[in-house]
Design a protein around this nucleic acid. Structure first.
Lengths: 251, 251
DNA sequence: TGTTGACTCTGACCTTAGAGGAGGATTTAG
DNA sequence: CTAAATCCTCCTCTAAGGTCAGAGTCAACA
């Protein structure tokens, strides 16, 4: 099941030239090269390409991507790290939007914004450097070991219940992102399924209990942080979904 | 009140070389050049630089930035357009995070993801091209006129109340982004202030009325869309904040 | 007034991440 | 068996700057 350059380029939406380039600099080697010199790629290469593109989207230079991918970090750690970086990037963009809003505002009023405020949000490029730097350190130091541990232990420890919770959460995130209302049937079905799972696995949770729990998620710093960092607004979305669910179940 | 290259570069966090470059290609001309050839920039140039950097952040090529900024679009239309593009970009990043999540998930389970799913989210580069294209059309066609109209009329029509609402919303967005709980004192103060404004400007809204209203914002497609597109989760955040506010006011 | 240190200029060359195209080989489909 | 599609290598080109080098300029302190 090997893919030609064209097939790869279509799948991943990169140019053939890019594949050539990555081959030349050793960043992505074909799984195999035919007699005639045709490049062929397999599943592993596809996954590697995915990793490359994530980092590229984050403006990492190819050399650094190379180093990261060729270090002995496992795929999961890398994916998690990438996710973190994307979340940071999103924060930054929000900040920039804020700056735009302020600029619009003061322009409408015919004022001139304070000079440094004109550029708020960009300066976090410095933080970006930091993140990049941090990535680098992972590679050279024992710290890397900690990270690896931190990331993979969590995963191995995840029992079935945790996996269910994780899955539930990501469904809710998807729902929120896709702009389903919290009282949408689909969303309510997800909640129902979640509670059903819990109730058939050693818990006993009524809709009203769950409502309490989601409220707690908002009030408790730790839980709120965890939810909100996955998706801003999530904690509140869960709560409203729970309200809605409790209401319909009550009747 | 003119700034030297160094001062500019510090303010906007760009290199001096970049300023040289922009000068050379005519993208950003100094307000004035001294006898000795020193570049000096004023307020107008600062604002233009801001515009350039926003587009650069959005990966527009400098040439296109040049065209856009030198077209006769007013600053406001451009800022609004940029905001739209940033929102799109954020959507894209969310999509990518989704893809990362799925990748993590299937890797943990030792499965291989469906090939094309590995790259979901990237492909929206095509859409991106579209947006870029669209921008281009603005410049050449009468369509531009429509956009201009659409954008600026809204603004001129904005009466004081609308401005207050807008300001309230952006404060709440900031609060959500900065991870303040909906029942945080600061957030509650914002709500209070908002209601106070309304009540002193021809409305009569009790906390419980406002609660009803935020509920309506979630249920009504149009309003929810509007809020959620500004900041995912916002509609729910507003609602929970209103719940909290109503509770405390009741006592 | 002179000198030092911080800034600034131009200009030439370097770098990254590819894009484009020429010229030629290979594969596949009819 | 031939034409179209795909692939190869090699060469040059581009965008958006970064990196010196060599030289002029400015402010401020002694």
């Amino acid at each position: 099941m090997l893919l030609t350059v064209k097939e790869m380029s279509k799948l991943a939406d990169v140019s053939i030239k890019t594949l050539h380039h990555y081959h030349k600099i050793g960043l992505l080697l074909p799984a195999q090269v035919t007699e005639a010199g045709y490049r062929l790629y397999g599943q592993k290469e596809l996954e590697r390409l995915q990793g490359i593109l994530f980092f590229r989207e984050l403006d990492f230079p190819l050399k650094m991507i190379h180093k990261i991918l060729d270090s002995n970090l496992d795929r999961i750690s890398i994916l998690k790290q990438q996710k973190k970086l994307f979340l940071k990037r999103i924060q930054k963009l929000h900040q920039l939007i804020n700056t735009i809003d302020e600029s619009i505002h003061s322009t409408v009023k015919g004022e001139h914004m304070d000079q440094s405020n004109l550029f708020r949000g960009f300066s976090s490029e410095a933080e970006w450097e930091e993140a990049l730097q941090e990535q680098n350190e992972h590679l050279t130091q024992a710290y890397q070991y900690d990270l690896l541990k931190e990331n993979s232990i969590q995963i191995e420890e995840m029992n079935e219940a945790a996996i269910e919770a994780q899955r539930f959460t990501s469904k809710m995130i998807a729902a929120l992102q896709n702009k389903l209302t919290a009282n949408d049937d689909q969303v309510q079905a997800i909640v129902k399924q979640h509670l059903h799972y819990l109730n058939t696995h050693g818990h006993q949770i009524k809709p009203s209990d769950y409502l309490q729990q989601t409220r707690f998620f908002i009030e408790d710093d730790f839980h709120r942080e965890m939810l909100e960092s996955q998706q801003p607004g999530l904690a509140y979305y869960l709560h409203v979904a729970a309200i809605s669910y409790a209401e319909t179940q009550q009747k």
